[in-house]
Structures are given as C-alpha cells and as structure tokens.
Design a protein around this nucleic acid. Sequence first.
DNA 1: TGACATATGTCCGATACGCACATAAGTAAA
DNA 2: TTTACTTATGTGCGTATCGGACATATGTCA
Lengths: 241, 241
Amino acid sequence: MSEAEFLETYDPARYERPSVAVDLVLMSVVEGATAALLLRRDDHPHLGAWALPGGFVGIDESLDNAARRLLASKARMDHAYVEQLYTFGAVDRDPRARIISVAYFALLPPLRFAAALRASPELALAGLAVSWPGETGGPVEARTADGEALPLAFDHADMLGLAVLRLRGKLDYSDVAFALLPDRFTLRALQDVHEAILGTRLNKPAFRRRMLDGGRLQATGERETGASFRPAELYRRRADD
Amino acid sequence: MSEAEFLETYDPARYERPSVAVDLVLMSVVEGATAALLLRRDDHPHLGAWALPGGFVGIDESLDNAARRLLASKARMDHAYVEQLYTFGAVDRDPRARIISVAYFALLPPLRFAAALRASPELALAGLAVSWPGETGGPVEARTADGEALPLAFDHADMLGLAVLRLRGKLDYSDVAFALLPDRFTLRALQDVHEAILGTRLNKPAFRRRMLDGGRLQATGERETGASFRPAELYRRRADD
DNA sequence: TGACATATGTCCGATACGCACATAAGTAAA
DNA sequence: TTTACTTATGTGCGTATCGGACATATGTCA
C-alpha cells in the first residue's frame, strides 16, 4: 500500500475530538508594574468575570498563526514578541465542552499597549499582583488601578502566573526586556522593567555594569528630554550579529 | 439566561475540530550520553522511520493523564518525572489530518530505562546527537549505538531538540538530574549526568563544591562497591523541606 | 550663581569559579 | 608485605562578578 493509498483510507473521524483554542496574555510594564489586557465576559460561562482574549484555532490555521490573528484582531497589533507558553488540558476546565487551550503571551512596549487599549474599548488594563517570590510559580491575581481585584475566568489566573514565571526565567539570557521598551530607552527604564518583572529592587551600579558589559546594548549618543535633572543617555538594543 | 440554560444551547460542533495527540520523549542517560526510546513506524505515513511513542488524547482524559497513560502502556512505567514540553501545531505536520501534538518528556533512571526497553521489544534505544552548543536550540538527530543515523518521522527531531534544551535550562535550578539517577549515587555519576545533558566537560572540584554547598545532597555514609580503586561515597537527594 | 536630583563612575569586600596540586583510600601486581 | 596505580577527596590561589558605599558629573530651576 502506498502512502497515497493509505491516506485515502485513513479516517480521522474515528476519534471524538476536543476543541482547541488559543488564549493570549497581552503583557506590558505600566508605571513600574506588570500589566495585562483582559476582556469582561458577557456570556456564559463565567459571565461577568474577566478573561484573556482568545478564540478557537481554525482547521487550516497553525497555532502560531492563530495567536497572531488574535493579536491583530483583539489588539490591532502586529510585530509583537509572541511566544507559546503552555497548553492547558484539564477535562473540566471549560464547562461548555472539552476545550484544550494553548496559551501564548505577547509583549508590548508601553505606547503600543496604550494604543491597543484605546483601539478596543472592551479591553481593560489589569495590574498583575504576584503573591509568590522568585521562580516559585502559581496563579496570579489581576487588579484595577485602584487595587480592586478582578475575578478571573477559567484557568486564566494560572496562565497569567505562567507568563510571569516565563518572563522572570528568560529575563537574564534573552531579549524579552527590550520587547517591553521603546526603540530608545535609558538604563533606568530598562532597570524599571527588570524590577517590575522580578518584583524586586536591583542594585543600580551592578545592574548598569551587567547590562553594559553584556554587549547587548548600544549607546546612541542622544539623551532623554524633559527631565528636570541630569538627562540620561539613550541606548538601543544592539543588532544581532 | 442561567449558566445551565446557556450550556444546553451551546453547540461545540459549530467548529471543525483538529485531532489532539500526545507524544512522549522517554529520556535517560546511558553510558555518558543522552538517549531516548523510539518506535519504528510500520504504517503510513513515514513508514519505516522512527517516531516517539504517542497517541490520541481521549475526550474524557486530561493531557497530563494521556501522557501518563502512554508512559504506562508504552514503557510499563509509572512514577517517572513527567513534564509538558511544547505543543506542535503546524497545519501540515501530519499528512493524514490536522493533528495537533502536545509533546511531553519523561526522565527515567538507567535501570528503569533498560527495563522499559526489555519489556517492549518494539522500542529501540537511540542516542541523541546534539549538533548545537549551549542553549542554541534546534533539531536533534537520533543514532544507534553504532553511530548509524535513524530517520525521524514528523517533527519529532524538533521535539527531541526541545527536550534537550529544556533539560539544559533546568539543570542548574531544578532536580531533573536526580530523576536520571538511582536513589543512591556518587558525585561522579551526578557529574556524568550533567556533562551528558550539557554536552560539555565540567571541572571536577568546582562541580563538587557547587553540589555540596547547594544543600540538595545528603551523604549516606555508604560507599560504592565493585570499583578497583578508592570507592566514592554514595549520596542521595535531600528530602524537600 | 547655587541648590537639587539624578546620572555616571570608582573603589572595596564578599563570593563563586576554574584550575593546579596535594593527599587519601581502595585494588592489584611484584 | 610492599609498591604501583587509579580515582576520590580536599586545599590553595588567581580571576571574574556582584552588592553596596561613595564620589563626581550634568542637567534644571529658583
């Protein structure tokens, strides 16, 4: 039997299949704290709770493309840093049906994040309240700017927790921090991003040394404007070799 | 409309659904090198190529349970270290149909690995030939003990590559190395596991200091037997506090 | 011109690591 | 019994890195 003949006789309908969805953690650092964009559910289940933007994966669409399509449709964004997080497959995670969800996260610099928020009025900004230190892991709460807790739908608190955990783990050896900053930024702004993600304060001289010796930064010779004190030099991410 | 009423009217069949499978990287360290268990395909597609053990996810079965079920059925094993790796969702990754595969890896100590190999004669031991240094990432080749390359089916070379990458990344701050060793082991055996995973040689006194100062080891007072030279002390993993 | 706030740079002590080397403790051969 | 041999175990030293205190630089603003 040739491969072509085999394919004609293969019947994938023999197995009952689950639905597959993608959920998207749209992250940024706003005023020194990590934040994500949430959608208030106006349908059952979890009516009134807050959920990550998501949608079902098309039958002719890769997982990565589904994530990018959601990024474009929910946040009117392209060219963001997008990475697959984890796949959630508990049987009862969605009471409607058996739905397996592949969680992705996307990193947006502050201006794009704010623009996405303006472009889609149904989106709300939620600050992430991480109650565990370091790389412990666990669910993460969402709060309004006033500190009010936003109830999260499904297992989305776990998705937020994994996003924070992944960011913390990749901070030292990848370029995720740069994806959360404009093209040009000061070392102080870079340190603010690190501190927001890690949830700790960092020693300033040591941080500067580490970044400058790391060779991933390039000085522009320009300085920030608008400061009422000595303006800091602007750096950009060095192009990959 | 109550949530119960909503659920009655919800129709998941509106969307055409992909099949969801789990593939399992059964890993160990054998004779100083990383190895995995492969299955020779006797069906189309990729007839004759080598594939990871895998299977479809039952409609009433969580992803984690599907991975454990495969571990039990393919390797007659339970109680192994099992962790989700990544979900592969390219549209054309399987010519039969749209099949999304959630890759898991399981870590087996050498004796269990050999027992699984004996218990399932259709399984073959494949050495992993990692052609990239450090945390670069990329596909990984499988070889027989003679060095002969085993052609891999589907995107399974990428799954093997991700398993190696994940192991390298977690080696320093997690207990994955202990999952690849018997209950009692010498520092030399622990170093061999580290070197096999990292693909580099490590400095012996520095490695010993790092492990002993790390506080995750507990000396047993016993010594290895059968060596024709000074026997090393046996350690065990310290119970979590 | 001087106060002020932050940026930038320097110095010092503590710690971790690579590495060379010394010593210990078994087996096996002389 | 003694000696050679091999690996385990321990020590000392130079180097790199980091936290932290401190000094200096450079802008705005009164």
